[in-house]
Design a protein around this nucleic acid. Structure first.
Length: 894
RNA sequence: AGGCACGUAGCUCAGGGGUUUAGAGCACCGCCUUGACAUGGCGGGGGUCGGCGGUUCAAUUCCGCCCGUGCCUACCA
């Protein structure tokens, strides 16, 4: 047995040193390494969220990543072979935006490549000038430069937090391996006919000039106005009034509809309406989708104002009159030519000239002005605009990262068919165990409500290229019906520089030649493959079989509809499997006012200063205290409590391991009773951890540590434990050894129960003595508490049950009664008691008999009497009479 | 408008397959330097467990309704 000299240890726990020292040791020893030789059953596979490297670091990262880490550390202690990778999600728009701002550059595909171009953070002076235009390859190089820096910043934090990551498994979603995996995924989906290209109305962000998928759309409540506009009916003297919030789309009006049962408009169906301002004749048709209660009950259909317009356009075979261009400005059109049409072409073109080139806001203003003028009426009844627009507030779809409402513009995009697989997707979701279970409802709701196939292509630069070329016809037009998809063995490819099979580079852009698709994938197309990226799907079948599906996917609830959804979709489409068996859904950290933390609000809490102040273990304690799934207001107080726990562990450990008495069999009633309680704690904690209820386990362990260990057992066993040092022999020495053994067992078990949450302090204490006892010298992995067995029945195998289950609580109650008497008398707990008379029921006194020596010793009672008082409840004591020794003279310690 | 979650001490949160005086930490009050720890210890005050009904011998715990908060989905004429 090894005991320590407390004087050899620092007075306080020096967290910063200890954290850096142990992180280095762990990395060097390889305690986190995945062992590819062990079987799937012995392996626990984590599909780690790759953080968006360009995103700002905040305390929420510490929160969710720690929760996963706690589970991982537990699993390792139960003997599992852990696969815990780390990736960086660096491709896509967030990186592009950051690079644009940081270097003050813009990507311009028409600018020639410049060899050896370097970039510097833009000064405020440089920022005042227009951004430098750089070629696409130069821009991509700039992105690579910056993500390297961003990723190292995260890496520093992960190390500091002690994440038990196997850094050999690191990946970037933009690296070659990930690009290849994403492109192979596309190839597989193409071969299985799950993807298609189509030139169709798609949600489009006019600022980013990029297509957007349903999952990236969010509704925002914005002010708007109902405009009531009078339309004429062709060949009749009647008219009707539609209501619209988008009068600027009038030039793109292709139809008018009302509910088939609406008596007001029934007579109009089949006739043509004439739009004001442009005098365009458009069909009037009935539709169940028109709501007689809304607006005026009759409405105009434009290409395209909203998703219903798209539907009407398709179902009714309406004309496509596109008036808004990709940049969000009104494009030139001619009412003399199809698809445009007007009964008064000159007038229509003149009106349109007023808005051509304008953006949506400007155009709306001008159109409304013109609608207020009688000359633009289609009926001759005066101004088409019937009354002052009615101001309303309504929900409008925005790209989640965008600033202007999305437009529906016809563009060619690649899509993945999902709408026909909703039921299958939900069935897959049901096969996954969600923690907490109600998070499955989020997934189900989203899947059920899905209304569009997944738009895969993005008109951006920094991402995985879509591995497709198109043959050019003799006219030089791309033949989109015959896409040339790269072969898996050639991937990754960049169609803008690589050449498809059977063609030469000189044929690029030539009639009869080919053209490469210049789009990249939606970022989620790649990050939805993280389990397969880690398992080397398609490249190493053995590894894939061992690592896929993963066991656990930790992530936050806001990306259920994106990351979780798409990952489930991919696993299903590729291999008809679930991607993982457990989804661990964490909540968000809100600011103390329960508002979401965001950079723009300026309420982001950064983690490192908190770690410096309270220790990494305390930060982990904070994270591990929270229930899964629920959002939690940031409360620094929890860090404080965590630090207190770390300090207490340090001090209690110092005391326990400093005991010089020999370890003897555990035989004393108090010790047996303590061990029995400890055993129950181990059983409960194990159950909780197995159910991913780490917060519960932590709470139980913490509570046990304070109330059963440091505050009570330690105090009760202290005198006896020290008896050996004070010269005890024979039975007394054996009893002393029993105390020392239980103290050491208790600490050993508690340290291991705390280890997943508090890796640093537990490892530090473990190294003082237990490492030598549990593992041979030189075996750095085995000496780590994190590679030591989770406590279990075998730790208690040879220890008898106590004579009386109530012994421990009885001892605690007796000591507390005496302490209360001391507190009432306002004397210190350390004051000697000359004489004590303690009352309890006969049964309670009987139980006390087995442990009274420890109680009286801890309370420093010199002489005592017991009194039977059956009116007292079982397990309670009353101090009938107590005489304290005089307060000792103050003497200097030697 | 639907769905989900939550509403327990001043604050942050546990808990609860019904049963004696409902828990923790922080904060507050009183006391104590005791040989692991003042980054400590002992003791104390503080809650009609959101409201109303129902089931039951018994509900804070189960059920229904309502109110409040948050999130998800829908809502663009």
């Amino acid at each position: 047995m090894r005991s320590i000299d407390p004087k050899s240890l620092s007075k306080h726990f020096e967290a910063v040193d200890v954290e850096q020292r142990w992180d280095r040791t762990w990395q060097e020893s390889g305690v986190y390494h995945y062992d590819a030789d062990r079987t799937r059953n012995e392996t626990f596979v984590v599909d780690t969220p790759p953080p968006t490297a360009s995103g700002s670091l905040h305390i929420g990262h510490v929160f969710s990543y720690t929760q996963a880490d706690v589970v991982v550390r537990y699993k390792r202690m139960t003997g599992m072979n852990i696969f815990y990778p780390m990736g960086w999600d660096d491709n896509g728009l967030p990186t592009e935006r950051r690079v644009q701002n940081y270097f003050h550059i813009r990507c311009d595909p028409n600018t020639p490549y410049q060899e050896g171009m370097t970039f510097e953070q833009a000064s405020s002076k440089v920022r005042k000038k227009p951004a430098t235009l750089v070629s696409r390859p130069n821009f991509i190089e700039a992105c690579y430069d910056l993500i390297k820096e961003d990723e190292s910043e995260f890496s520093v934090l992960w190390h500091r937090m002690g994440l038990a990551v196997d850094w050999r498994q690191e990946y970037q979603t933009i690296d070659e391996h990930c690009r290849r995996t994403a492109q192979r995924s596309f190839r597989d989906l193409f071969d299985k006919d799950h993807v298609y290209t189509s030139d169709a109305p798609t949600m489009w962000d006019v600022d980013f000039q990029c297509a957007v998928a349903q999952a990236e759309v969010e509704d925002r409540e914005v002010p708007g106005a109902f405009h009531k506009i009078e339309f004429a009916v062709e060949g009749e003297d009647t008219s009707f009034v539609i209501a619209t919030t988008r009068p600027e789309l009038l030039a793109g009006c292709v139809g008018v509809t009302a509910h088939p049962e609406d008596e007001r408009f029934k007579s109009l169906f089949g006739k043509r309406a004439i739009t004001p301002l442009f005098n365009a004749p458009v069909p009037i048709f009935p539709s169940e989708m028109a709501d007689p209660e809304k607006g005026t009950g009759i409405l105009m259909v434009c290409t395209f104002g909203d998703q219903t317009d798209v539907q009407w356009w398709r179902e009714e075979g309406l004309a496509l009159r596109q008036i808004i261009g990709l940049q969000g400005r009104f494009i030139p059109v001619d009412f003399a030519e199809a698809p445009f049409e007007s009964l008064d072409v000159a007038k229509a073109n003149a009106a349109y000239a007023e808005i051509e080139g304008k953006n949506i806001k400007q155009a709306q203003k001008r159109i409304v002005e013109m609608l207020g003028e009688a000359e633009h009426s289609a009926t001759g009844n005066g101004p088409p605009l019937q009354e002052e627009p009615e101001q309303i507030s309504h929900a409008v779809k925005f790209f989640e990262k965008g600033d202007r409402p999305l437009e529906l513009l016809p563009t060619r995009q690649w899509f993945c068919r999902l709408l026909d697989k909703k039921a299958e997707m939900i069935a897959k979701g049901e096969q996954i165990t969600w923690h907490p279970p109600y998070m499955f409802a989020r997934y189900r709701d989203w899947t059920e409500n899905l209304s569009l196939d997944w738009c895969l292509s993005r008109q951006r630069y920094f991402g995985v290229p879509i591995p497709v070329w198109y043959p050019l016809t003799a006219d030089g037009e791309p033949d989109y019906d015959k896409p040339l998809v790269a072969k898996a063995e050639d991937m990754p490819v960049d169609p803008t520089t690589d050449v498809p099979d059977g063609y030469e580079e000189v044929q690029r852009g030539q009639p009869g030649g080919f053209t490469g698709d210049s789009d990249i994938f939606d970022t989620w197309f790649t990050s939805s493959m993280t389990p397969q990226i880690s398992s080397h799907w398609g490249e190493n079948d053995d590894r894939h079989a061992n690592l896929f599906p993963a066991d656990m996917r930790p992530q936050a609830h806001d990306i259920i509809r994106t990351w979780a959804f798409y990952t489930i979709a991919k696993a299903m489409l590729h291999e008809d499997k679930v991607p993982w068996h457990n989804a661990l859904i964490s909540g968000w950290i809100l600011d103390p006012d329960r508002k979401k933390m965001s950079k723009s609000k300026g309420n982001v809490t950064t983690p490192l200063p908190l770690i410096e102040k309270y220790t990494a273990d305390a930060a982990r304690y904070w994270a591990a205290s929270a229930r899964l799934g629920s959002d939690t207001a940031f409360d620094e107080n929890i860090f404080k409590i965590g630090k207190r726990l770390v300090t207490k562990l340090f001090n209690a450990s110092k005391f326990v391991l400093a005991q010089q008495g020999q370890v003897q069999p555990i035989t004393q009633e108090l010790d047996l009773a303590f061990v029995a309680k400890l055993k129950t704690l181990v059983e409960d904690s194990t159950k909780n951890y197995d159910a991913y209820q780490y917060a519960h386990a932590l709470q139980d362990t913490e509570s046990f540590f304070w109330t059963h260990f440091t505050d009570t057992y330690l105090e009760l066993a202290k005198v006896r434990a020290r008896a050996f040092e004070d010269g005890a022999t024979g039975d007394e020495a054996a009893a002393s050894g029993s105390a020392v053994a239980s103290l050491r067992l208790g600490l050993s078990v508690l340290l291991r129960l705390f280890a997943p949450v508090l890796p640093y302090i537990t490892e530090e204490v473990w190294s003082w003595a237990y490492a030598d006892e549990f593992a041979p010298e030189g075996d750095a992995i085995a000496r780590s508490i994190h590679a030591t067995s989770w406590p279990s029945g075998s730790d208690f195998a040879e220890i008898a049950a106590p004579a009386d289950a109530a012994s421990f609580d009885t001892a605690v109650a007796a000591l507390a009664a005496i302490n209360r008497a001391k507190a009432d008398a306002e004397v210190s707990m350390g004051r000697d008691v000359e004489q004590l008379r303690l009352a309890a029921s006969v049964e309670t006194l009987r139980i006390l008999g087995g442990i009274s020596k420890d109680v009286l010793g801890a309370a420093r009672v010199a002489a005592h009497e017991f009194e039977t008082k059956d009116s007292l409840e079982a397990g309670t004591f009353e101090v009938v009479n107590i005489v304290f020794a005089p307060k000792p003279e103050k003497h200097k310690k030697d």
